[in-house]
Amino acid sequence: MVSDIHTTLEAVPPGKKARITGLDAGPGLATRLMQMGLTPGVEVEVISRNRGPILVKVRGVMIALSRGMAKKIFVKII
């Protein structure tokens, strides 16, 4: 069964994949995120989620982002 939960990247458990549905960031920050490959529609794999920043793999690249940042990224868990 495919779960179909809309949430933010901050809440995705490690090992799970999610698809970005939107960004809630100002234009400058949004552009930065998107230039690093975090665009709506892309698949993101959460590598680790400890107390610190979240590690994700997107478009073949590992990216660390703070929880505050991850909360601004809406996703659908797949």
């Binding site: 920050l29 930065r32 690093m36 590690l55 990216i63 660390a64 982002l65 703070s66 505050g68 940042m69």
Partner: peptide, 12 residues
């Protein structure tokens, strides 16, 4: 009051 946002590529 909140810490700065953090975004960084982690190269191999």
């Amino acid at each position: 009051s909140e810490p700065p946002l953090f975004l960084l590529e982690i190269p191999p």
